[in-house]
Write a protein that binds this DNA or RNA. Structure first.
Length: 858
RNA sequence: GCGCGAUUAGCUCAGUGGUAGAGCGCCUGCUUCACACGCAGGAAGUCGCAGGUUCGAACCCUGUAUCGCGCACCA
């Protein structure tokens, strides 16, 4: 085999291996397989989307789960795809049309416009999919789905028809959230309450029946005065109760200063503002309800795009709603009706997609009364579905308790068209046209009305039989209502079974300022740039290592660089092994005499496997990464391999040490594979561990190797000796002669290893400390001595030792303080007390050794 | 207003009752024959604050502050 390069070069490896995996059809799930099923459906990214770090985190986690499941002998399906993102995609294409052809979609007509959207989708829709491939995702691309696929789209419409027939879908005139930019209704979930600094405008109106009596009204939206059809006060409010039933004169518009009634309504909070509420039933949800209760007129003064219409009067017609606000205030001022304007902060609902304030608007829409809300709630309450972290269960539960009907119609062209047909006033709900002359409802369905079927309708019958319910869903908590909850309802309604057993909610990746990363903010680095820089494995490992379970993370590129460094570290450990000679992929350390270091390393490998498996059980991915990092970098490279450099020279130990390394590398490769698929696959082949893909190699098991505490003691002694050396500013490349007075017989056999660890010229075993100037450090394996003749002044060693003694005395005081407390000795468990006694003895013997050292310096 | 989360070293974060941890950054020294994407060593924290429980609290309880998120309200 060729020698490995000096540094791991991901770009030389990744595309080649990914192509090979596809060629080998490694990712394709077989519904006929006898293996137990493990399945995940991808949260479909928007077809307009580009990969963000959020996607990287989310999809890396799914890939980790998929790859580990394959290694554990499961038949794995990771089903990928994209959703059609109604508003976003239509907006993108419309913008392009405007820019390139100066046309609107209406210029083209519905059919031609949709043709353009499909063209756009064919051309650009694959971007995010290719990015997922670059990341190494092991999705079954033969099953890639799109929410507008013919079969899937038909199912969406069938579900509409079914729910309609069950009486759960209805059409009605309601107050909805209207987006004046996208020109469509939105669901409540798509409205983001956003703090907004504005003004509370106070103006006065005169009571018609009592000339000279004025009522003061506070409002944030003076531009809607023209749509007011009443004024409301709380009937319990002594200031105003007597006015109920009388009228006020509406100040605007000037050409229609109507008399509007004063009504009494409990909804009015008399603490707020002046306690007098102007009622605009056409443009406010609460006002609409008040209006309904009191039979007030609905005066719609707004056009769909947010400009005012003729009902607003000629001085306002045509103005944008925010220009109209200024104009209305100005007019009130001119009329002398404006009392004051005071700064006021309130929450304004913004459109999630278009980023503008939504407009409450009365319109006719389709609504869904959700099915299966109670079973969906119970499924999580009863742990049929488990959430990780489980705190999201409460959020989910609360939403379902207070669930409102879902506005599912959208005034768009791109999407699943509502399967309702009209002819001469007759209405039919069915997927296919009833025949000539029937006109289909022009609206389409909310994108989420299609993606709530994603967990089951992306699968054909055979696939579904094997892989539904899926094992786990990995997604962000920001779509717990949009998608997770709705999918549970759809699964229960249409499959009679929950869609997944576990839901893992990732954290949200934020930038340095703590802001959420998003495409629109443009604050997410391009993952492809990062991959080019550190490799897909480095990016994956780096991002997962800093993402604790379900906690938001602050992104720092340095963390990603660490991922690369780790990959390179392990690469070089393998390279070092390769330089020593032929690797035995089937090495069995138990067939060899093992050094205490080898024995202990194997026990640490066991402990690492245990730590990793436990962490996986709780979806603690950063813990898995940390366990790998600690074992590979610390136990394996820093300690074992350094010690092995001596043992390779020792014929009695060489074979056992090599076998141990071969064994450990074989297992680390597999443990690391889910996190770093490329480098592990490459090394698996390059080092001769196998010819098939590592992703089907058996997941490592705990073997039961016995630990050897002597190894720790030796490494710890080496660390202390290095510290001593550094204290005297002796550079690490200066090879010194050391003496060692061993505390136990075995220690003498390890001077070779210790010499390497200390970069010592020699370590000489002595039975007593020599006379003269010697620096010393007491360790568990004995007294390490550094003759200082000509190197350092004995007085400074005395000073150093005095410092050490002081530290030890503090520790002894701490332990003795506890042990001398009767309540501690009697109250604490026996083993804790015993442990403190051992600690005390340890410190005391160290103190003694240090005092001896001082004494010996004279 | 209700709920959730966070608060530990300069930074990013682990740590659920028994000697405060990691990585980065910083300082010092090293081109030691795998790796400078590296090696060795070091400095650095009254664990947000105040009470309480306990022999013992970063950890459990109560309160409180600050930041963030969600829900409700928002004239």
């Amino acid at each position: 085999m060729a020698e490995l390069s000096k540094a791991y070069e991901p770009q030389a490896v990744e595309d080649r291996l990914y192509a090979w995996w596809l060629e080998q059809r490694c990712f394709e799930a077989d519904p006929q397989s006898a293996k137990p099923a493990y399945s995940i459906v991808i949260p479909p990214p928007n077809v307009t989307g580009v990969l963000t770090l959020g996607h990287v985190l989310n999809n890396t986690i799914q890939d980790i789960l998929a790859r580990r499941a394959r290694m554990q002998g499961h038949e794995v399906l990771w089903l990928p795809g994209t959703d059609h993102a109604g508003i976003a995609t239509q907006t993108v294409v419309e913008r392009k049309l405007r820019k390139e052809e100066h046309k609107t979609r209406h210029d083209l007509g519905r059919e031609e416009f949709l043709k353009r959207v499909w063209e756009w989708k064919e051309k650009h829709g694959g971007i995010i999919i290719n990015q997922l491939k670059k990341l190494g995702c092991s999705c079954d691309w033969s099953r890639e789905r799109f929410t507008m696929d013919e079969a899937y789209a038909r199912r969406v419409q069938e579900v509409f028809v079914d729910l309609f027939q069950k009486g759960l879908i209805y059409r009605g005139v309601r107050m909805v959230n209207w987006c004046p930019v996208s020109l469509t209704a939105l669901s409540d979930e798509e409205v983001i309450p956003t703090p907004h600094k504005g003004f509370l405008y106070h103006f006065k109106v005169e009571v018609v029946e009592e000339p000279g009596t004025w009522l003061e009204i506070a409002t944030t939206r003076p531009e809607t005065i023209m749509g007011d059809s009443g004024v409301a006060v709380n009937p319990k409010d002594p200031r105003y109760a007597h006015l109920i039933g009388k009228h006020v004169r509406r100040p605007l518009p000037l050409d229609n200063r109507a008399e509007i009634p004063i009504v009494g309504d409990e909804a009015v909070d008399f603490e707020f503002g002046t306690g007098v509420l102007k009622v605009t039933p056409a443009h406010d949800k609460v006002d609409y309800e008040i209006g309904q209760r009191h039979g007030l007129a609905v005066i719609d003064i707004l056009n769909p795009n947010g400009t005012l219409n003729d009902l607003a009067g000629e001085e306002f017609a045509g103005l944008d709603r925010f220009e109209a606000r200024e104009a209305a205030v100005e007019k009130l001022r001119e009329l002398g009706l404006l009392v004051k304007e005071e700064p006021h902060e309130n929450n304004v609902g913004y459109s999630e997609r278009a980023g503008v304030p939504i407009e409450p608007r009365l319109s006719e829409q389709w609504f869904l009364k959700y099915p299966m809300t109670v079973p969906a709630r119970d499924a999580v309450r009863n742990q049929l579905i488990r959430f990780f972290p489980d705190r999201w269960e409460k959020v989910y539960d609360h939403w379902l308790e207070n669930i409102q009907d879902w506005c599912i119609s959208r005034q768009l062209w791109w999407g699943h068209r509502i399967p309702v047909w009209n002819k001469d006033g007759e209405v039919r709900c069915q997927v296919d046209s009833p025949g000539e002359g029937w006109v289909q409802d022009s609206d389409v369905l909310d994108t989420w009305f299609s993606s709530w079927l994603w967990a089951h309708d992306t699968m054909d019958d055979a696939t579904r039989a094997k892989f539904y319910p899926t094992s786990v869903l990995v997604t962000g908590p920001d779509i717990i209502f949009f998608w997770v909850a709705r999918m549970i309802m759809a699964g229960l309604e249409y499959m009679g079974e929950v869609p997944f057993r576990h839901v893992y909610f990732t954290g949200i990746i934020r930038d340095k300022q703590g802001k959420k990363m998003s495409k629109s903010l443009g604050n997410s680095p391009d993952p492809l740039d990062l991959i080019a820089k550190v490799g897909a494995d480095g990016l994956r490992f780096g991002i997962i290592r800093i993402a604790p379970q379900g906690q938001d993370i602050r992104y720092d590129e340095q963390q990603i660089v660490e991922g690369r460094n780790f990959c390179n570290k392990f690469w070089n450990a393998c390279r070092f092994r390769q330089i020593q000679g032929e690797i035995d992929p089937a090495a069995d350390p138990s067939q060899h005499e093992l050094s205490l270091f080898a024995q202990d390393l194997l026990a640490k490998l066991d402990a690492t496997i245990r730590r990793i498996d436990t962490a996986y059980d709780e979806y603690r991915f950063s813990e898995v990464a940390q366990a790998l990092y600690d074992f590979v970098w610390g136990d394996f490279c820093d300690r074992f391999i350094e010690a092995a450099k001596a043992d390779f020279q020792n014929p009695a130990r060489r074979e056992g040490t090599l076998a141990t390394i071969d064994y450990v590398i074989g297992r680390v490769l597999r443990l690391l594979h889910p996190y770093a698929p490329f480098i592990t696959e490459e090394l698996w082949h390059e080092l001769g561990y196998g010819t098939g893909s590592i992703q089907f190699a058996e997941w490592p098991q705990v073997h039961g190797w016995a630990a050897d505490a002597r190894a720790e003691a030796a490494f710890d002694a080496a660390a202390q000796a290095r510290n001593l050396r550094a204290t005297y500013n002796l550079p690490s490349n200066k090879r010194l002669r050391w003496l060692l007075q061993p505390s136990e017989p075995w220690v003498a056999a390890e001077t070779g290893v210790l010499s390497v660890l200390l970069n010592a010229e020699a370590i000489e075993i002595v039975t007593e400390r020599p006379a003269g100037s010697v620096a010393s450090c007491p360790t568990q394996i004995g007294l390490l001595l550094l003759p200082l003749e000509g190197i350092i002044d004995p007085e400074s060693e005395k000073t150093r030792l005095a410092g050490e003694i002081k530290k030890v005395e503090v520790e002894i005081k701490k332990v003795q303080g506890k042990l001398s407390s009767e309540s501690f000795v009697n109250g604490a468990p026996a083993e804790v007390v015993a442990e403190h006694r051992v600690r005390e003895a340890g410190w005391k013997s160290r103190l003694e050794a240090l005092r001896d050292a001082v004494a010996s310096l004279g």
